[in-house]
């Protein structure tokens, strides 16, 4: 055993092969992905899978490229190399408005509601690509977030952080996506609302929507998810079930603050 300062994979419970615990028929399959912004490469050889209905989080230190992975899946960065397939078809060259048609919705971290539009108008915008506003989807969102029904005519910009996050998620759920991308859903929320937000994400996942989430709140996220990826310096380090990553000595020391 190399119990000294030389890094080693021995004695680490998380597996080196990022695909090791990935499901057989992945909904989203990312292979050897290189991407960045303009000429600046952020991601190198990222490998990631999300199974049907699976709840996956990406954790890692600041600047590791967690959000970049998510944005790249949604076609918002400069694609360089590798493949992203969703439900068997390649999507890594598609623009965001086409990716939405494929069944992926994305909730950005900041400014994720149209502040000058009402709650209901925000939801209608979520279904823009449909010919008609799907009233039953709006009702489904209102059933999930009843406070939004009460405030349907209120301008989203005048709502609290937690309610705005509900509007943003509701907008993303309007197309009943197969995969929901959530970028730091707990950011900016009061501490007592964070658990509530994670409960809502659990509920969305329980209803069959696969979730890929980036979270700064790594411990909570790993406790909640099915599987986690640890990302460092734009490369995958480990993947395993959330609980086992949480228990992992290396992960704890490097990314979770001991």
């Amino acid at each position: 055993m190399s119990g000294d300062d030389t890094p080693s994979t021995e004695g680490v419970s998380a597996k080196r092969d990022p695909t090791a615990t990935a499901p057989e028929n992945a909904l989203l399959r990312v292979r050897d992905l290189d991407a960045g912004y303009g000429d600046l490469q952020i991601l190198t050889d990222v490998v990631l899978d999300v199974g049907d209905g699976e709840y996956v989080t990406i954790v890692g230190p600041n600047g590791a490229g967690k959000s970049t992975v998510m944005k790249t899946v949604f076609g918002l960065t400069t694609y360089m190399d590798g493949t992203i397939t969703f439900q068997g078809s390649e999507i890594h060259r598609l623009p965001p408005e086409r990716i939405i048609h494929e069944g992926i919705s994305y909730v950005p971290q900041n400014e994720n509601v149209f502040g000058s539009l009402t709650v209901e108008e925000n939801l209608e915008m979520g279904a823009y690509i449909l010919d008609e506003v799907p009233e039953e989807r709006i009702e489904a969102v209102y059933d999930r977030f009843p406070v939004l029904r009460e405030r349907r005519d209120q301008k989203a910009g005048t709502m609290s952080g937690g309610q705005r996050q509900m509007v943003a998620m509701g907008r993303a759920l309007m197309l009943d996506p197969d995969l929901l991308l959530l970028d730091e859903p707990s950011a900016g929320l009061a501490p007592d609302l964070v658990d509530d937000m994670f409960d809502r994400i659990d509920a969305i996942n329980d209803d069959g929507t696969a979730v890929l989430m980036v979270e700064q709140n790594a411990k909570t996220a790993l406790r909640r998810c099915d599987r986690g990826y640890v990302l460092a310096q734009g490369e995958n380090s480990y993947t395993d079930t959330g609980d086992r990553l949480l228990a992992d000595e290396r992960v704890r020391q490097q990314f979770l603050g001991g």
Partner: peptide, 23 residues
């Protein structure tokens, strides 16, 4: 109208309009 709301949405936040699927 849907177009009018999309115009207001885009005036509000272009990046979000793009990820929402507004052409």
């Amino acid at each position: 109208t849907k177009l009018g709301k999309a115009m207001r949405a885009m005036a509000d936040n272009k990046d979000l309009a793009l990820v929402t699927g507004i052409p």
